[in-house]
Amino acid sequence: MSSMSRARFLASAVAVAVLLVASGNVEAGRHGHGRAAHRHTKGLRPGKARAPAVAANATSVEQGFARWVRFMGGLEHSVFQRALNRALVPTTRVVVVDKTPGAGDFTSIQAAVDSLPVINLGRVVIRVNAGTYTEKVSISPLRAFVTVEGAGADKTIVQWGDTADTVAAGPWSRPVGTFGSATFAVNSQFFVAKNMTFRNTAPVPRPGALGKQGVALRISADNAAFVGCSFVGGQDTLYDHLGRHYYRDCYIEGSVDFIFGNALSLYEGCHVHAVSPQYGALTAQNRKSLLDDTGFSFLNCRVTGSGALYLGRAWGTFSRVVFAYTYMDNIIIPRGWYNWGDPTREMTVFYGQYKCTGPGANYAGRVDWSRELTDEEAKPFISLSFIDGLEWLRL
């Protein structure tokens, strides 16, 4: 094996190991086995390596991630250990992005992201000064602990215009698909965004148009929070793909399925605005199994806009969405929910309302397979415990 091949193999091994073992520690922590596992690894490799610096107020999940680094640092394979020593340097810094050359550290958000260590273990704040940044941004899986903070959602905008049928550059010339259409894609844990607008500039498609999904932001990782952000697009605006997420005081605009995915997410104090000229759907939640701990909960939100809007469509067989203490304008279709053309899903979905207000909140016309929740039924959906927020959320 050549030296170049060995280097590539080592880099791949580090990446895969980080993802697999870090995930295991998170799950262990959630099920109460994290401490026992920690004792076991300490007994095997006492005092071999120091953990990277972790803030004193780090959550249990963050501490578990650091414990894994200590475990890996104790391995006897010196080449592997040296690679980790180079890659796992904790970073606690602020970088500034400004469109004007020389006014900040970088002129694009992606350049700031690319400057981070391949495996990032310290909180890095990317401060994005006011301006419209026309670029496509992606944060790779191992660049954890990234905060992107704008000067205000009305002042700091990142935008792009891909749709599902946009053909990717390169020799393959294939459409990027809905997943690849995202203006801003997050694939790493512990991401935070504040006071930013994420926009897909593709226009609202005509009813029934194919390949016109245009994602403004896709979040495909656990432990993410968004505060004071705006997500603006036409169809499929916010791809709430995977993981536990928290949205507070955000604005979300779109027409069809403009909040969709299979995450476990709490939307608190958010304004959801429909721009469909005819018919639309607010959510398309993709829970596929009764065992999946996923779903969307909207707490103290507002639903406004134009057209006629379903509260949700049953993308997943066990789709789960709840609206609590939410104001609904008169754009809500009285039936409220759509079964995705599959009547069997009416027996497996979980769609509920709890103490909602406004002309669109009248439960009398709802489909008989949705429910008006009791106090006891609503309780799991109306606090941070819905997303295990007390374990990992720190804003």
Score class of each variant (00 low, 15 high):
residue 1 M to F: 04
residue 4 M to R: 15
residue 4 M to G: 15
residue 5 S to Q: 15
residue 5 S to W: 07
residue 6 R to W: 07
residue 9 F to T: 15
residue 10 L to P: 07
residue 18 V to T: 14
residue 22 A to F: 12
residue 22 A to D: 15
residue 24 G to E: 10
residue 26 V to S: 13
residue 31 H to G: 11
residue 31 H to F: 11
residue 43 G to W: 07
residue 44 L to I: 14
residue 46 P to H: 03
residue 47 G to H: 05
residue 52 P to H: 10
residue 54 V to L: 13
residue 58 A to S: 12
residue 59 T to H: 11
residue 60 S to E: 15
residue 61 V to M: 12
residue 66 A to H: 03
residue 70 R to L: 06
residue 75 L to G: 14
residue 78 S to H: 02
residue 80 F to Y: 04
residue 82 R to V: 01
residue 86 R to P: 00
residue 89 V to K: 11
residue 90 P to Q: 03
residue 92 T to E: 14
residue 93 R to V: 02
residue 93 R to T: 12
residue 96 V to P: 01
residue 98 D to K: 00
residue 98 D to C: 03
residue 99 K to A: 08
residue 100 T to D: 06
residue 103 A to C: 05
residue 106 F to N: 09
residue 107 T to W: 04
residue 107 T to P: 09
residue 109 I to N: 05
residue 115 S to R: 02
residue 121 L to S: 04
residue 124 V to E: 06
residue 127 R to T: 06
residue 127 R to H: 10
residue 133 Y to K: 04
residue 135 E to D: 05
residue 136 K to A: 11
residue 137 V to E: 01
residue 143 R to K: 09
residue 152 G to E: 00
residue 162 D to N: 13
residue 166 T to N: 07
residue 169 A to C: 04
residue 170 G to W: 05
residue 172 W to G: 13
residue 176 V to P: 08
residue 182 A to S: 11
residue 182 A to G: 10
residue 185 A to W: 00
residue 187 N to P: 09
residue 194 K to H: 01
residue 194 K to Q: 08
residue 199 R to N: 12
residue 200 N to I: 06
residue 201 T to N: 10
residue 202 A to C: 07
residue 203 P to M: 06
residue 215 V to P: 03
residue 216 A to L: 07
residue 216 A to Q: 08
residue 219 I to Q: 12
residue 223 N to A: 04
residue 226 F to K: 02
residue 227 V to R: 03
residue 227 V to S: 02
residue 230 S to T: 09
residue 230 S to R: 12
residue 233 G to H: 00
residue 233 G to L: 00
residue 234 G to R: 07
residue 240 D to Q: 08
residue 240 D to P: 06
residue 245 H to P: 10
residue 252 I to C: 10
residue 254 G to K: 02
residue 254 G to E: 02
residue 258 F to T: 02
residue 258 F to N: 02
residue 260 F to Y: 10
residue 264 L to S: 05
residue 268 E to T: 01
residue 270 C to K: 01
residue 271 H to N: 13
residue 272 V to S: 07
residue 275 V to A: 05
residue 278 Q to L: 15
residue 279 Y to I: 04
residue 281 A to W: 01
residue 282 L to C: 05
residue 285 Q to G: 11
residue 286 N to Y: 01
residue 288 K to F: 03
residue 288 K to Q: 15
residue 295 G to T: 07
residue 297 S to Y: 10
residue 297 S to R: 09
residue 297 S to L: 08
residue 298 F to E: 12
residue 298 F to M: 13
residue 301 C to W: 03
residue 305 G to P: 06
residue 312 G to D: 06
residue 314 A to C: 13
residue 315 W to E: 15
residue 327 Y to R: 02
residue 330 N to D: 12
residue 331 I to C: 10
residue 334 P to M: 04
residue 334 P to G: 06
residue 335 R to W: 01
residue 341 G to A: 04
residue 347 M to H: 08
residue 354 Y to R: 09
residue 356 C to L: 00
residue 358 G to L: 03
residue 359 P to E: 03
residue 363 Y to L: 02
residue 364 A to Q: 00
residue 366 R to D: 09
residue 369 W to I: 03
residue 370 S to G: 15
residue 372 E to F: 09
residue 374 T to V: 01
residue 376 E to H: 01
residue 377 E to G: 05
residue 377 E to W: 00
residue 378 A to Q: 06
residue 378 A to C: 11
residue 381 F to Y: 15
residue 383 S to W: 01
residue 385 S to I: 03
residue 387 I to S: 10
residue 389 G to F: 00
residue 390 L to M: 11
residue 393 L to Y: 05
residue 395 L to S: 13
residue 395 L to R: 10
